[in-house]
């Protein structure tokens, strides 16, 4: 059981290494899905939102982590 727990924990860590990053990515994907699925934006604009949203999430996460580390 211990091995299974460790393997499950390792797998979870693969995808949820940083909770804020995971939350950010899932939010961007959900927003894109909502906007394109409801027809509020054309699919191509949805694609741009998805791509740029992921870039913003990554940069923001790294910047915040870096600043927090520097302030310590």
């Amino acid at each position: 059981m211990n091995i299974l727990r460790e393997v499950a924990g390792g797998l979870l860590k693969m995808f949820v290494g940083d909770a804020w990053l995971t939350l950010g990515v899932l939010s961007v994907v959900s927003l894109t899905g909502l906007l394109t699925g409801s027809g509020a934006v054309p699919p191509l604009l949805g694609g741009a939102i998805l791509f740029l949203g992921c870039i913003v999430v990554l940069v923001a996460n790294v910047a915040v982590y870096g600043r927090r580390h520097r302030d310590r």
């Binding site: 693969m14 940083d18 992921c54």
Partner: peptide, 22 residues
């Protein structure tokens, strides 16, 4: 695609932080 994004962004984030010396 979502799993790849989570996996890839996690790796890229960590690689950036490591390359930056954080």
């Amino acid at each position: 695609g979502v799993l790849l994004l989570l996996f890839g962004m996690g790796w890229l984030r960590k690689a950036v932080l490591r390359a930056a010396g954080i």
